[in-house]
């Protein structure tokens, strides 16, 4: 099959209803099988990644003591697809709307919802 030029299969030009039905069912099955197999691959990939993540803390690590946030800070904020600048803006807006000082608020995470 060439890319720049492309013709049609003359044998499939005029097909009967029976052949069309078979092609339709086969096509739907192929799409399903393709995506189900891909789903299995993604599941396996996800499992491998999460198990690796879980295994990582088992390695000898210094005891972690949750440090209190320094006075005047908003604590640790996890950012997902949000720049530092946007996060600062969002936190400032929330503080302003709630009429509370920023250091009395705790932001756990900020995530962009598309």
């Amino acid at each position: 099959m060439m890319f720049l030029v492309f013709g049609t299969n003359p044998e499939m030009e005029h097909i009967g209803i029976g052949t069309a039905g078979i092609v339709a069912i086969l096509g739907y099955v192929v799409v399903f099988v393709g995506l189900v197999l891909l789903m299995a691959v993604i599941y396996a990939l996800g499992k491998a990644m999460t198990s690796r993540k879980k295994a990582a803390p088992a390695a000898p690590a210094a005891p972690v003591v949750a440090a209190e946030p320094a006075p005047g800070t908003a604590g640790e904020v996890k950012l997902y697809s949000v720049s530092d600048r946007d996060a600062a803006l969002i936190m400032a807006i929330v503080a302003n709307k709630l009429q509370k000082p920023l250091n009395e608020l705790r932001f756990k995470s900020i995530k962009e919802v598309q």
Partner: peptide
């Protein structure tokens, strides 16, 4: 990844319209 099943099912119209 289960979303894949809905993405696959939603191709039904392609093959019904073809037929």
């Amino acid at each position: 990844p289960k979303s894949m099943l809905m993405g696959a099912a939603a191709q039904l119209g392609v093959f019904v319209a073809f037929f």
